[in-house]
Nucleic acid binder design. Structure first.
Length: 331
DNA sequence: AAGGTCGCCAACCGCCCAAAG
DNA sequence: GCTTTGGGCGGTTGGCGACCT
C-alpha cells in the first residue's frame, strides 16, 4: 500500500494560479507567515489548493526578490561550473544565486544553457574531425563507459577548457572552480600583494597523478597561490606553495566564504590536502569517495540508468580520474 | 490562413528523508 | 524502534505562444 495523499485530490484545484489566488496566498503569508505547515495553509486561507502547490507557488513566484529570466553570463558560469561539479542538485545551485529558484535554474538549464553549450561542443567536434579525423582525440572518450549524465558533464567541462567566451572568466575565478577542496575555493589575493603570484602565467590549485590500473588518484602538488587575475574581495595574500604545511597549518590564512558555505559543508577533510596522499576511489574513505558515493546515491534512479553498482562505480571513477587529469594537470 | 512543430516554463508527480508521535 | 507525516527535491508533463511550412 502506498502513502496516503497529502490532500484530497478530488477537491483540489490544479493548473495555473489565478491572480486572486496569488493575492490570497501572498497576503496571508505576508501577515502570518506559513505557520510551519503548508498542508494546513490552504484550508486556513480558503484556497482549494494542495499545500505543496501553495508552497511551490510561494517559493517560485510570490516570494519577495524573485528574479525571472535574464540570466547574466556570470550566472551562466556559476550554473555551469556547479552543474559540472555537483550535477543536477538545483537547490544547491540556486542557493548560490540570490533571487533565483531551483525550478527556474532547472528550466533554464534544460531549455537553454545546456543546448547553448552542447551546441558549441558539437560545432567544435565537427571542426576537430574535419581537420584531424584519424587522430585519437582525448576529448572524444569512448562513451560506453559513461552515463549520459557523466558524459554530459565531461563534455561540458571540456567545453569550458576550450571556450574563450563567454566563460573566459571561469578559470580566473576560484569561486567558480569545480569540486576543489572547498577551502581552496575561497581565498583571494592581488598581484601587488604577492608579486610571486603575479608572475604566474596560470594557476591550478591542485595537481593529481592518476593511476588508472589501480584506481588511485595521488595528490602530486598543491599550489596555495591564487589566480593573479582574480582580485575581488581581497583579504590578504597567501603563503607561497613552499610554505605550505603538510599538517594543514595554513588554515588560518584561508577564509571561509558564506557564499560557498553549502559547498564547504559538503566538502572534504583536511587530510585531503597533503601532497602524496592517495585516494582509492573504491574504498569509501576519502573525500573523493564520499563525493562518488553521493553521486552514485543521488543519481542511482535516473542518471546512471540501469547500470549495475559495479558499473556505476567504474563509471564514476573514470569520470573523476579523467576529471582530475583534465582539471588539475599542471600547464 | 491554417495546421503542424517547437520551445519555454509553470506546475505537478512521486520519491526520499527527517522529525514527530 | 516503528509508523506517520510534511517538507524538500529532481524529473516530467502539459498548456500556450511563437515560428515554420
Amino acid at each position: 500500500m502506498g502513502r496516503a495523499p497529502c490532500c484530497d485530490k478530488a477537491n483540489v484545484k490544479k493548473g495555473p494560479w489565478s491572480p486572486e489566488e496569488d493575492v490570497k496566498l501572498k497576503d496571508y503569508i505576508d501577515k502570518y507567515g506559513t505557520g510551519g505547515n503548508w498542508i494546513a495553509l490552504p484550508q486556513k486561507i480558503g484556497l482549494k489548493r494542495c499545500g505543496k502547490s501553495c508552497r511551490l507557488r510561494w517559493l517560485n513566484y510570490l516570494r519577495p526578490n524573485i528574479k525571472h529570466g535574464g540570466f547574466s553570463e556570470e550566472e551562466d558560469s556559476i550554473i555551469l561550473s556547479l552543474y559540472i561539479s555537483i550535477g543536477s542538485r538545483w537547490s544547491i545551485i540556486a542557493a548560490q544565486l540570490p533571487g533565483r529558484t531551483d525550478n527556474d535554474i532547472k528550466n533554464y538549464w534544460n531549455t537553454k544553457l545546456k543546448k547553448k553549450l552542447l551546441g558549441r561542443q558539437k560545432q567544435m567536434n565537427r571542426q576537430d574531425s574535419s581537420t584531424d579525423s584519424n587522430e585519437n582525440n582525448s576529448n572524444n572518450k569512448s562513451p560506453q563507459n559513461l552515463s549520459n549524465s557523466a558524459l554530459e558533464r565531461l563534455q561540458l567541462h571540456m567545453q569550458l577548457q576550450n571556450l574563450q567566451s563567454p566563460f573566459s572568466s571561469f578559470y580566473n575565478n576560484p569561486i567558480l572552480w569545480p569540486k576543489l577542496h572547498p577551502l581552496l575555493q575561497s581565498t583571494t589575493a592581488t598581484p601587488d600583494q604577492n608579486p610571486k603570484l603575479a608572475s604566474q602565467e596560470s594557476f591550478h590549485p591542485l595537481r593529481f597523478n592518476t593511476d588508472h590500473q589501480n584506481n588511485h588518484i595521488k595528490l602530486a602538488e598543491i599550489n596555495t597561490g591564487i589566480s593573479p587575475l582574480y582580485s575581488e574581495n581581497v583579504e590578504q595574500s597567501l603563503n607561497p606553495a613552499h610554505e605550505f604545511q603538510p599538517n594543514f597549518g595554513f588554515s588560518q590564512d584561508l577564509r571561509l566564504d558564506n557564499h560557498n558555505m553549502d559547498l564547504m559543508n559538503r566538502g572534504g577533510s583536511k587530510e585531503f590536502l597533503q601532497v602524496g596522499n592517495e585516494f582509492d576511489l573504491t574504498n569509501g574513505s576519502s573525500w573523493w569517495s564520499e563525493e562518488l558515493e553521493l553521486e552514485r546515491k543521488t543519481t542511482s534512479s535516473s542518471s546512471w540508468g540501469s547500470a549495475s553498482v559495479l558499473d556505476q562505480t567504474t563509471e564514476g571513477m573514470v569520470m573523476l580520474q579523467d576529471y582530475a587529469q583534465m582539471s588539475y594537470h599542471s600547464v
